[in-house]
Write a protein that binds this DNA or RNA. Structure first.
Length: 453
DNA sequence: GCATGATCATGC
DNA sequence: GCATGATCATGC
């Protein structure tokens, strides 16, 4: 049934009309004046779809794209994974955060809610070199109406961001502050970028926008569905409460005890993922993170503390390539992306009796000052890789992070800018830094030291 | 006991 | 086969 047109007052009609784009690019369906394409790969595909496919020009720039239907139109990129399924290429930017006006808003009348309560999201296959009008739409368009199960979480994310602005800390905003909604950077990002004023501090803040995190987008796409059961976050439980309910019965118990209770045992004496597996069985009753934590992009990490209070090890992150980092920007680097996440630490400690027990569980995200220090280490690493990839920042050079090998064995070498081969490396958070962080999370079973009061 | 270098075990 | 999270090993 090919429809020639649609009813702009009807969400369903707009949705049906949009479906006819799937499998095609905008450019093959309608004529786009070349002046508007302009040889640029970037461009506002959403506006082009609205103007040339829907032939629709809203009377005003304010309000939804389709005011009569109360519908917002969004286009967003996906990339194909090796197994053929899709994942979000990036976060979905919803609307700029106006630091001046958000402090006077309430959720029910907020500009964010106006944007995201009803959206039609079209997915196109991202191809870097291809102009946006030539990118193919894939998947069915998604009619998004803020699901009940996500509403409370997104609302409290919004309130957290608002509170941070009210505390004069707009410049310290981080994606790790929140769960589904992120205060993402929006702007040139260059050295000369103009900072924005914030109402309760003289400090300039980088421009930010509300966005759905990539992890949340992936869940919407439905390509990462797992069988893991919901924790029940959102209805009447916070992340902290729901997590505490799962871990409470095991806190204080020994590894041995937990292992027996869950009937999960070490496969070998050197089973390196054992503590993590126990934690996942406690938290998720399985091997996958519960859907809420997956949607929030939570980074669950196990930390093992020795009798003397120090972590047994520093904390590693995925390896990087020498040839990549020299051309990367901090805010686009994978280390930055990791450190912007919210962490869930599952902490074990060996007691004076030599027995290791589950000590506590805590949510955490990296404070502003420490993110700046991590950036310094990253920039220093980038600089030194270009000079000599075998001489990189050691843990003695920073209180927060360092660089060390990360490989399968001594043959796991990759190319350096110097033309040689050297052991693959990754970033680590120092053991001493972790000690301070874990100590700072206090004694509670589940806390969140990122909270601002 | 710690910093640094080196490597393991697992799951996909 | 490979990335990943995590741990082991060595020398000071």
């Amino acid at each position: 049934m090919d429809e020639q047109s649609y009813d702009k007052t009807s969400v369903d009609s707009i949705h049906e009309f949009a479906k006819q784009l799937t499998g095609k690019s905008l450019g093959e369906v309608v004529y786009i004046p070349t002046a508007l394409i302009n040889d640029r790969n970037r461009g506002d595909l959403g506006s082009l779809v609205e103007s040339f496919y829907f032939q629709h020009r809203p009377a005003t720039n304010h309000g939804p794209d389709f005011p009569e239907a109360g519908l917002e139109l969004k286009t967003t990129g996906v990339v194909k994974k090796s197994d053929g399924s899709y994942r979000a290429k990036e976060r979905l930017v919803l609307t700029m955060i106006n630091f001046e006006s958000i402090v006077g808003e309430i959720w029910e009348g907020s500009s964010l809610l106006g944007k995201c309560r009803s959206m039609l999201i079209l997915f196109y296959l991202y191809r870097k070199k291809l102009p946006v009008v030539d990118r193919i739409f894939v998947l069915d368009p998604l009619l998004y109406s803020l699901p009940n199960e996500d509403l409370e979480i997104i609302k409290s994310d919004w309130e957290f961001i608002k509170k941070k602005v009210e505390s004069g800390k707009a410049h310290e905003l981080s994606e790790g502050d929140t769960f589904y909604l992120g205060a993402c950077r929006k702007g040139s990002g260059g050295e000369g970028e103009a900072l924005r004023k914030q109402p309760f501090s003289d400090e300039g803040a980088k421009a930010r926008a509300f966005s759905f995190k990539p992890s949340y987008m992936n869940k919407l796409i439905g390509e990462r569905a797992s069988s893991a059961k919901s924790l029940g976050v959102g209805q009447n439980l916070s992340f902290q409460e729901a997590t505490a309910i799962r871990f409470d019965p095991f806190v204080g118990r020994s590894i041995e005890e937990i292992s027996v209770l869950l009937d999960h045992h070490k496969k070998s004496p050197n089973h390196k993922g054992f503590h993590r597996e126990l934690a996942l069985r406690i938290l998720a009753h399985g091997k996958d993170l519960p859907p809420e934590l997956a949607k929030a992009g939570i980074e669950m990490k196990t930390v093992r503390i020795q009798q003397n209070g120090r972590p047994r090890e520093a904390m590693s992150f995925p390896g990087f390539k020498f040839l990549d980092i020299v051309n990367e920007e901090w805010e686009k680097s994978s280390f930055f992306e990791r450190l912007e996440r919210k962490f869930l630490f599952v902490v074990f400690q060996t007691g004076p009796d030599g027995i290791e027990r589950l000590l506590k569980v805590a949510y955490w995200n990296m404070p502003y000052e420490d993110r700046l220090e991590a950036m310094r280490v990253w920039e220093e690493t980038k600089r030194r890789v270009a000079l000599d990839a075998t001489d990189l920042p050691k843990s003695s050079e920073s209180l927060v992070a360092h660089v060390r090998p990360k490989g399968r064995n001594g043959n796991d070498k990759i190319a350096t800018p110097q033309g040689g081969m050297h052991l693959r490396q990754c970033f680590w958070l120092n053991a001493g830094y972790l000690e301070q962080v874990i100590g700072g999370t206090g004694k509670q079973i589940v806390g969140n030291n990122s909270s601002i009061t």
